[in-house]
Design a protein around this nucleic acid. Structure first.
Lengths: 249, 249
DNA sequence: CGCTGTGTTGACAGGTCTCAATATAAGTGG
DNA sequence: CCACTTATATTGAGACCTGTCAACACAGCG
């Protein structure tokens, strides 16, 4: 690797301005960097949970498999995400982790992760906040899947991705790289690939978006928000109810 | 109140065996106990987040409202639940909290909650673990809503409630109190009340369950699990990867 | 160059929704 | 305790959205 700092900003930075010591504590988490080819699984549902993964580069997904063989993608991961954390509370993993582009990850042992709570208490807060954020995003997905049409689901999903990209890249324009096949989008939105195709065409005709190859262009974001029917979430950075005590790291 | 300890076991107890000091720290959270009549909202989506709630008695729901007016219940709360925590990371609340039976709650200020991280670091871990557990349950809901039929959704939902009740009450039999209307069940499963009615009748005819008034009887739990198509989650209590360091409170 | 994955389109079937009406239960006030 | 109102449950007919199956086009990749 040519670059000296190959790690993208960790999601924890979103809530806490980290000190140098805390950044070091996080860096100590990382095991060796592993390259994983597109399509390969990092971990299968049902396997024991011995480690989690930090996504350095590329896109990955967390998915659940139903007994009937159907697949539901529960999260699309971007660089900076921790993969596999929800299953830490389970005896065997709930989600399958799959690379959908070639990716680079670092393995994080659970013991190293657990030590973080000891080494950097303030990071515990950040991890707690990050988990709550994930809950909000899942709640939005639940609402979208349970109570909206195919067009609405696709609209709210692409906005979800767009909003996540903008958190770390304020320059992010309406044109974005989205390495998901139509089948992937179906697995996210609970639709079949065939119907996703029709919906994308329809949204194209309506001037909402264009999805060509792996390039997605949001043509009319305000209209997409209206269609998606979910409010844009405004995350609070460092709530004052945590600040008062000025908890030490 | 006649009883001296009106509080049900807090969800945090599920992951950490709490010390006396930690129990005290939790008890200090509680503001005065408030009774809320059935149907009343504790907090509406869009309002600023100034407090959360500890559910002492009765049933409540967290729901999201879509722009079109549709409602999706994202969580059915039992006594011992903390209500409203996900929105702690937002400027304005995402979920509306509603009592579906007469309930008793205690108000918990965010500042008091934030202090918990300072007073009892080990509780931070428990709160983190609890949040991951919520993520798993939401992921299961996402999979159920996105990739399964009406019968499957109802099956996995009633099993979800059954499993939650059994955590604190191992004696819990297949007959349980479920104060949800068919419209409520529809708001949980993403179906209309009319269709829920038909599905419940069909499941009754198939010998799966009986739902009369507020009493739900699971007639064939193994068959319900097969139909629901989701695995039963086995929560780990106190993972050894946290135990090694023996983090002090 | 052929193979495989992905995208595209059509016809049809099926599950769920909508609308409507009625029955039953629950709650309220006299 | 009864009369009235409201909420909830139940049932039917029809429409609509999405799924299924099938075939084919196109692109990426060996």
């Amino acid at each position: 690797m040519a670059d000296q700092d190959p790690f993208p900003p960790h999601r924890l930075f979103e809530f806490v301005e980290l000190t140098a010591a805390e950044r070091q504590a996080i860096d100590r988490l990382h095991g060796p960097v592993v390259r994983v080819p597109k399509g390969q699984q990092l971990r299968r549902a049902g396997e024991p949970v011995v480690e989690i993964f930090f996504l350095i580069e590329g896109w990955a997904i967390s998915s659940l498999d139903l007994a009937g063989g159907e697949r539901q993608i529960v999260k699309v991961h971007l660089p900076g995400d921790l993969l596999g954390t929800p299953s830490m509370v389970l005896e065997t993993a709930a989600e399958t982790l799959t690379a959908i582009t070639p990716i680079k990850v670092s393995r994080v042992s659970l013991t190293a992760f657990g030590q973080l709570f000891h080494d950097a208490p303030r990071l515990s807060i950040a991890m707690f906040m990050s988990a709550q954020q994930e809950r909000i995003m899942l709640m939005d997905r639940v609402a979208s899947l349970g109570r909206s049409s195919a067009v609405q689901r696709v609209a709210s999903f692409v906005l979800h991705v767009y909003d996540r990209l903008r958190v770390w890249n304020p320059e992010q324009g309406p044109k974005l790289y989205l390495p998901l096949t139509q089948e992937n989008i179906g697995d996210v939105t609970g639709l079949t690939a065939v119907h996703v195709n029709r919906i994308l065409r329809q949204m194209n005709d309506d001037g909402l978006l264009v999805h060509d190859r792996q390039c997605l262009t949001l043509l009319d974001i305000p209209k997409l928000r209206t269609v998606g029917a979910l409010p844009e979430r405004r995350w609070c950075q460092w709530p004052e109810w945590l600040d008062r005590k000025n908890i030490e790291g």
